[in-house]
């Protein structure tokens, strides 16, 4: 039982490290703000969730695990809110989403007005 929880916790922690590195690499390499927001979501959701989950398997039941759950809940609630506010502020200040001109889009899926800039029209 102890061996099983150890193996599970190390697998979770190493997976979390992988997702954190992938997210940070995306934060460094992506072309504009909105795609970097996507990479930031990988860090916040998968990275934090897997690492804190692995730490929970290490500590067992108790006050420490409760605090870890509290940290995880706080991160998972605050991250989408701040990401949404950031995307909204960037869009309102006239930031253009990255758009690949050579991308073939079927006629039925096309946004009227063309390009990612049409997303701005949904703002109230």
């Amino acid at each position: 039982m102890s061996l099983l929880s150890d193996v599970l916790s190390w697998a979770l922690i190493l997976g979390g490290c992988f997702f954190i590195l992938v997210g940070a690499l995306g934060l460094l390499r992506m072309p504009d703000v909105f795609t970097r927001l996507h990479a930031h979501g990988v860090i916040d959701t998968m990275g934090a969730g897997m690492i804190l989950g692995g730490l929970m398997f290490q500590t067992g039941l108790g006050l420490v695990t409760f605090k870890l759950v509290l940290v995880l809940v706080l991160v998972w609630f605050s991250s989408p809110i701040s990401t949404y506010a950031l995307a909204r502020a960037a869009l309102k200040s006239g930031e253009e989403p990255y758009w690949n001109e050579e991308l073939e889009i079927p006629e039925t899926a096309r946004i009227p007005g063309g390009g990612g800039a049409a997303m701005g029209e949904e703002e109230p």
Partner: peptide, 21 residues
Amino acid sequence: TVFDRVLAANSFGTLTVLILS
């Protein structure tokens, strides 16, 4: 842009929470 810096600071904060844990 300034939003890139805010985003990087936000994810730096999340990583700080993780390293503290």
